[in-house]
Amino acid sequence: MPTRVDHEQRRREIAAAVWRIAAERGLESVSMREVAAEAGVSLRLVQYYFETKHNLLVLSLRYLHERGEQRAQARVAAQADQSARGIARTLLTELLPLDPERELSLRVHRAYFSRTHSDPALAKLFVGAGTPVEDLLTSLLRRAVLPAGTHPRHEANLLVAGLTGLGLDVLHGRFNPAEVLAALDYHLNRLFGPGPAQA
Rank of each mutant, 00 (worst) to 15 (best):
M1A: 14
V5Y: 00
V5M: 12
E8T: 01
Q9L: 10
Q9P: 00
Q9I: 09
E13Y: 11
A15T: 01
R20Q: 15
G26S: 12
G26H: 05
E28W: 11
V30L: 07
S31N: 06
V35Q: 03
V41N: 07
V41F: 05
S42P: 10
L45Y: 12
Q47C: 10
Y48N: 15
Y49F: 13
Y49P: 02
Y49I: 09
Y49A: 10
F50L: 04
K53T: 00
H54R: 11
H54N: 12
L56I: 03
Y63G: 00
Y63L: 08
L64E: 01
H65T: 12
E66K: 01
E69D: 10
E69C: 05
Q73R: 15
A74P: 03
D81E: 07
A84V: 11
G86L: 06
E94F: 05
E94H: 04
E94V: 05
E101M: 06
L104V: 08
S105N: 13
L106M: 06
A111Y: 07
Y112I: 08
Y112C: 04
S114Q: 14
R115L: 14
R115K: 14
T116W: 15
S118Y: 09
D119P: 02
P120R: 02
L125R: 09
P132W: 05
L140I: 00
L141T: 01
L141N: 01
R143L: 10
A144D: 06
V145C: 12
V145N: 10
L146S: 03
P147R: 05
P147M: 10
G149R: 13
P152L: 11
P152S: 10
H154S: 15
H154M: 15
V160K: 08
A161Y: 07
A161T: 15
T164K: 12
G167E: 03
L171N: 01
R174N: 14
A178N: 11
A183F: 15
H187P: 00
L188C: 08
L191W: 01
G195N: 03
P196E: 15
A197K: 12
